[in-house]
Measured scan of single mutants.
Amino acid sequence: NEEPLPEGWEIRYTREGVRYFVDHNTRTTTFKDPRNGKS
């Protein structure tokens, strides 16, 4: 039961299956979860 991502964020996966987060607001990507700060 995960809380929803902030507005404008999306979860994607690399070809290796590593989860990362896309911030469409700033057009950046990060491996850090914007909901809780954990990677």
Rank of each mutant, 00 (worst) to 15 (best):
Asn36Gln: 12
Trp9Val: 02
Lys38Val: 15
Val22Trp: 12
Asn1Glu: 14
His24Arg: 09
Phe21Leu: 01
Arg15Ser: 12
Arg19Ala: 10
Asn1Cys: 14
Thr30Ser: 09
His24Phe: 09
Thr26His: 06
Val22Arg: 06
Ser39Glu: 14
Glu10Leu: 06
Trp9Pro: 00
Pro34Ala: 00
Thr26Asn: 09
Arg27Glu: 12
Arg12Gln: 08
Thr30Glu: 02
His24Gly: 07
Ile11His: 03
Pro6Thr: 03
Glu10Thr: 09
Trp9Thr: 01
Thr28Lys: 11
Pro34Thr: 00
Arg27Trp: 08
Trp9His: 00
Gly37Phe: 11
Ser39Gly: 14
Asn25Phe: 08
Asn1Gly: 13
Glu2Thr: 10
Pro34Asp: 01
Val18Lys: 12
Pro34Lys: 01
Asn36Ser: 13
Glu7Lys: 13
Thr26Trp: 03
Asp33Gln: 01
Pro4Gly: 10
Gly17Lys: 06
Val22Ile: 13
Gly8Thr: 02
Thr26Gln: 06
Trp9Asp: 00
Asp33Leu: 01
Glu16Phe: 15
Trp9Cys: 00
Asp23Met: 03
Asp23Arg: 03
Arg35Trp: 04
Glu16Asn: 15
Trp9Glu: 00
Gly37Asn: 13
Thr28Met: 08
Thr26Glu: 05
Arg35Lys: 02
Thr29Val: 15
Val18Ser: 07
Arg27Gln: 14
Phe31Gly: 05
Pro6Leu: 04
Glu7Tyr: 12
Arg19Phe: 06
Glu2Tyr: 11
Arg12Asp: 03
Tyr13Leu: 07
Thr14Gly: 05
Phe31Gln: 07
Asn36Trp: 11
Phe21Lys: 00
Arg15Phe: 11
Pro4Thr: 08
Glu3Tyr: 09
Thr26Leu: 05
Val18His: 10
Asn25Ser: 08
Thr14Trp: 03
Lys38Tyr: 14
Arg12Ile: 06
Asn25Val: 09
Arg35Ala: 03
Asp33Cys: 02
Thr29Gly: 07
His24Val: 08
Arg12Ser: 06
Asp23Ile: 02
Tyr20Phe: 11
Arg27Leu: 09
Glu16Met: 14
Arg35Ile: 03
Glu7Ala: 14
Pro4Tyr: 07
Trp9Lys: 00
Gly17Thr: 02
Thr28Asn: 08
Arg27Ile: 06
Asn25Ala: 08
Val22Asn: 02
Glu3Cys: 15
Pro34Glu: 01
Gly17Leu: 05
Ser39Asn: 14
Thr28Trp: 06
Leu5Gly: 02
Thr30Phe: 04
Glu3Asn: 11
Glu2Ile: 10
Glu7Trp: 10
Pro6Ile: 04
Glu10Met: 06
Gly37Asp: 14
Val22Asp: 01
Gly17Ile: 01
Thr14Tyr: 03
Tyr13Pro: 00
Gly8Pro: 03
Asp23Pro: 01
Asp23Asn: 10
Asp23Glu: 05
Pro4Met: 09
Asp33Trp: 02
Tyr20Asp: 00
Trp9Asn: 00
Thr29Asn: 09
Arg12Pro: 00
Glu10Trp: 04
Asn1Asp: 14
Thr30Ile: 04
Val22Ala: 05
Thr28His: 08
Leu5Glu: 01
Arg12Asn: 06
Tyr13Gln: 05
Glu7Leu: 12
Asp33Arg: 02
Asn25Gln: 08
Pro4Trp: 07
Thr30Asp: 03
Pro4Val: 07
Arg12Phe: 09
Pro6His: 03
Asp33Lys: 02
Glu10Lys: 05
Val18Asn: 07
Lys38Phe: 15
Pro6Lys: 05
Glu2Trp: 11
Pro4Phe: 07
Pro34Phe: 01
Glu10Ala: 08
Arg27Tyr: 08
Thr26Lys: 06
Glu2Leu: 10
Glu7Asn: 12
Asn1Lys: 13
Glu10Ser: 10
Asn25Lys: 10
Glu16Ile: 09
Leu5Ile: 06
Asn1His: 13
Glu10Val: 08
Tyr13Asn: 03
Thr29Trp: 15
Ser39Met: 12
Pro6Tyr: 04
Asp33Met: 01
Thr28Arg: 11
Phe31Met: 12
Glu7His: 13
Pro4Ile: 08
Gly17Tyr: 05
Gly8Glu: 03
Ile11Val: 10
Lys38Asp: 15
Gly37Glu: 12
Glu16Ser: 15
Asn36Lys: 10
Glu2Pro: 10
Arg12Ala: 09
Thr30His: 11
Phe31Leu: 13
His24Tyr: 09
Gly37Pro: 12
Asp33Ser: 01
Tyr20Arg: 01
Tyr13Met: 07
Glu16Thr: 15
Phe21Val: 00
Glu3Thr: 11
Trp9Phe: 05
Phe21Ile: 00
His24Thr: 10
Tyr20Thr: 02
Phe21Pro: 00
Asn25Gly: 07
Glu10Asp: 07
Ser39Ala: 14
Phe31Arg: 08
Arg12Trp: 06
His24Trp: 12
Asp23Phe: 05
His24Met: 08
Thr30Trp: 06
Tyr20Glu: 03
Val18Ile: 14
Glu10Ile: 07
Glu3Gln: 11
Arg19Val: 10
Asn25Ile: 11
Ile11Phe: 06
Pro4Leu: 08
Asn1Tyr: 13
Arg12Leu: 09
Gly8Tyr: 05
Arg19Trp: 05
Glu2Ser: 10
Asp23Ser: 05
Phe21Asp: 00
Gly8Leu: 04
Lys38Trp: 14
Ser39His: 14
Val18Tyr: 12
Glu2Met: 10
Asp23Ala: 03
Glu16Gly: 14
Phe21Ala: 00
Trp9Leu: 01
Gly37Arg: 08
Lys38Gly: 14
Arg15Gln: 10
Phe31Lys: 07
Asn36Gly: 13
Pro34Arg: 00
Arg35Leu: 03
Gly37His: 12
Glu7Arg: 13
Asp33Gly: 01
Val22Ser: 03
Arg35Asn: 03
Glu2Gly: 10
Arg12Tyr: 07
Tyr20Val: 07
Val18Gly: 06
Gly8Phe: 06
Arg15His: 11
Thr29Phe: 15
Val18Pro: 01
Ser39Trp: 14
Arg27Asp: 13
Ile11Gln: 08
Arg19Ile: 13
Leu5Thr: 03
Arg27Gly: 15
Leu5Phe: 06
Tyr20Gly: 00
Glu3Phe: 09
Gly17Phe: 05
Arg19Asp: 01
Glu7Val: 12
Asn36Cys: 15
Leu5Tyr: 03
Glu16Gln: 14
Asn25Pro: 03
Glu2Ala: 11
Asn25Cys: 12
Gly37Ala: 10
Arg27His: 14
Arg35Asp: 02
Thr28Val: 08
Pro6Gln: 04
Asp33Pro: 04
Thr29Leu: 14
Lys32Ser: 10
Thr26Phe: 04
Phe31Pro: 05
Glu10Gln: 08
Glu10Phe: 07
Ser39Pro: 15
Gly17Met: 06
Val22Gly: 00
Thr14Val: 03
Tyr13Gly: 01
Tyr20Ala: 01
Ile11Tyr: 05
Thr28Glu: 08
Asp23Thr: 01
Glu3Arg: 10
Ser39Val: 15
Thr14Ile: 03
Glu2Phe: 11
Thr30Arg: 04
Glu7Gln: 13
Lys32Asn: 13
Phe31His: 08
Phe31Asn: 07
Glu7Gly: 09
Thr28Phe: 07
Thr14Glu: 01
Arg35Val: 03
Thr30Val: 04
Val22His: 07
Asn1Ile: 13
Arg15Thr: 11
Glu16Leu: 14
Glu2Gln: 11
Glu2Val: 10
Pro4His: 08
Trp9Ser: 00
Ile11Ala: 07
Pro34Ile: 01
Thr26Met: 06
Glu3Gly: 13
Asp33Asn: 02
Tyr13Val: 07
Val22Thr: 04
Pro6Val: 03
Pro6Arg: 06
Thr28Gly: 05
Phe31Tyr: 11
Phe31Ala: 07
Arg19Leu: 10
Glu16Trp: 15
Gly8Asn: 08
Pro6Ala: 05
Thr26Pro: 00
Asn36Ile: 12
Thr26Val: 03
Gly37Lys: 10
Tyr20Leu: 06
Gly17Asp: 04
Arg27Ser: 13
Thr26Asp: 04
Thr14Met: 04
Thr26Ser: 09
Lys32His: 14
Leu5Pro: 15
Thr29Tyr: 15
Arg15Cys: 15
Thr30Ala: 04
Asn36Ala: 12
Arg35Met: 02
His24Cys: 08
Arg15Met: 12
Ser39Arg: 10
Pro34Leu: 01
Asp33Val: 01
Tyr20Gln: 03
Ser39Ile: 14
Ile11Gly: 03
Ile11Lys: 06
Thr29Asp: 05
Gly37Val: 11
Glu16His: 14
Pro34Asn: 00
Gly17Val: 01
Thr30Gly: 04
Phe21Thr: 01
Pro6Trp: 04
